[in-house]
Simulated assay, not measured.
Amino acid sequence: MPKQTFYNLPEEKKQTLIRAVEKEFSRVPLHDASITNIVKEADIPRGSFYQYFDDKEDAFFFLLDDLAEKRKEVFIRLLEKHHGDLIDAVRAFFQTAITEVENLNFMKNTFLNMTYKIEDSFLKAFSDRQNSEQFREVSSLIDKRKLNLAGDKELFHVMQILTSVIVRNLVEKFARNLSDEEAMNHFTIQMKLLKTGLYQTE
């Protein structure tokens, strides 16, 4: 995470640095990113970068964690909009993720160069720990009457499954250069299978 000196920056300078970091990670994935390009874009000395971040990975995960937090807020709004219907909210969330222009290149570079650490950082905004405050917040908004679940322990695992499906479909969209419509069709089929189950009812 950024050092305290980063948080002490005036807001304008902080946003300038964030934009420079985002521009570089939107240009190339983490392992190819250049601190030289970041400091040049932000118009700061190279030494100043290390006053704010430990290294480029620290800057990358700050950006990713911030994006994941914003995604969580979007998901919560969608849960409210869809009256707690989990599958409808997840479908709307995926559609938002693939159609919005902002952060698209950053997301593409991130998901095409996925590591466990990156996936974990993205997923924890939705299903970090069963007893975490943010999980309880999401759980409270879900209409559990529609779900075949024994309680929050099973809901936690369902959230992990759903977020893993989201990540896999984002990777597929970017790797295969699918259109928004194709990606949405694939995702809708998978959501239908999860909603109805795989086994025939007696």
Rank of each mutant, 00 (worst) to 15 (best):
I44E: 02
S139V: 04
K13S: 13
D58S: 10
F93Y: 11
I166N: 03
G84D: 03
F106D: 00
D120Y: 14
E172D: 11
E182V: 09
S179W: 12
A89I: 02
S164D: 13
S179E: 09
N148V: 03
F93D: 05
L78Q: 08
V74G: 01
L9G: 03
D66V: 14
I142L: 07
M191K: 03
R71M: 10
M191L: 15
Q4T: 08
E172P: 01
S139K: 03
I18C: 06
L30D: 01
V21C: 13
R77V: 10
L104K: 15
R19P: 02
T201I: 09
S127T: 10
F187A: 02
K23D: 10
L147Q: 04
F111N: 00
K23M: 08
V90K: 12
F60K: 07
V39P: 04
L30P: 05
T99Q: 11
V167H: 03
I76N: 04
L170C: 08
D152Y: 02
D43E: 13
I142V: 07
E172M: 14
I35W: 00
Y116M: 11
L155I: 00
A68D: 06
V165K: 11
M184L: 12
T5Q: 14
F111W: 04
A68L: 02
D143A: 05
L147I: 00
K173G: 14
I44K: 03
N177K: 15
D180N: 14
V21F: 05
D152L: 02
R71V: 07
S179V: 09
N105I: 00
K117C: 07
T163F: 14
A175T: 12
S140G: 13
D54M: 12
D65F: 06
L123H: 06
T201E: 15
I76L: 13
L79W: 04
I44N: 01
E119D: 15
H186A: 14
Y7E: 10
E12N: 08
T36I: 14
T196A: 15
T188W: 07
E133R: 10
F94E: 01
K14G: 05
Q95I: 08
T16S: 10
V171I: 11
R145K: 15
H186E: 12
V138N: 01
L63A: 12
I87V: 13
N103K: 11
L30S: 06
Y52I: 05
G47W: 03
M159C: 12
E73V: 14
Q95W: 06
E102V: 09
P29N: 12
L155D: 00
S139Y: 10
T5V: 15
I18G: 05
E80A: 11
F61D: 01
R71A: 14
D128H: 06
D143V: 01
A20I: 03
S139G: 10
L63D: 09
R19L: 15
L63F: 07
E11I: 15
A20Y: 00
T110N: 05
L112Y: 04
R27F: 07
A175I: 10
F174G: 01
R129A: 11
E137I: 10
L17N: 01
K70W: 04
D66M: 15
S140L: 05
V90D: 13
R176N: 15
M184R: 12
F60Q: 08
A33I: 06
D65W: 08
L64A: 08
D152Q: 04
A33E: 01
T201P: 11
I18H: 04
D143H: 01
Q200D: 10
A125C: 06
Y50C: 06
H82D: 05
G197C: 09
